[in-house]
Computed example of a mutant assay.
Amino acid sequence: MSSEDFDRRFDAGDDISDLIDWGAAERINDIERVALDLPGWRVRRLDRLAAESGTTRQALIARWLAERLDGAA
Rank of each mutant, 00 (worst) to 15 (best):
G54Q: 07
G71A: 15
L19C: 05
R48S: 11
G23L: 01
F6I: 11
W64H: 07
D5M: 07
R48C: 02
E32Y: 08
A59P: 01
I20A: 07
E52I: 03
S17L: 07
V34G: 05
R63G: 04
G54I: 06
A35H: 11
R45D: 09
E26R: 15
A25Q: 14
A62C: 04
W64V: 05
L38V: 12
S53T: 02
L19G: 05
L49W: 10
A73E: 13
S17H: 07
M1C: 04
I16T: 11
W64T: 06
R33I: 00
M1I: 08
W64M: 10
I20D: 08
S3H: 09
S2V: 07
R44K: 12
E4T: 07
R63L: 04
A50P: 06
R42K: 13
A12L: 03
E32W: 05
A73L: 10
E32K: 11
R42M: 11
G40K: 12
A59I: 00
A66D: 14
L36E: 01
R42S: 03
V43N: 01
Q58Y: 00
D18E: 15
D70A: 10
D18F: 12
D70E: 09
L46E: 01
L49K: 09
A66L: 13
R63C: 00
A35N: 15
E52M: 13
A25G: 06
R68Y: 10
I20W: 10
A59Y: 00
R8N: 06
Q58K: 05
G54K: 06
S3M: 13
T55M: 14
V43M: 10
E26N: 06
E4N: 02
L46I: 14
D47A: 10
E4W: 01
N29C: 08
R9F: 13
G40P: 05
G13W: 08
R33L: 04
V34H: 14
E4H: 03
R9W: 12
F6E: 05
D21C: 03
R48D: 12
G40R: 12
D7N: 14
D47P: 02
R33G: 06
D7Q: 12
L65E: 02
A24P: 02
T56F: 09
D37T: 14
T55H: 10
E32N: 06
R44P: 00
D37V: 09
A12G: 06
G23N: 12
P39V: 04
A62W: 00
R45N: 02
G23Q: 07
I16G: 05
R42H: 06
G13A: 04
T55W: 11
N29P: 00
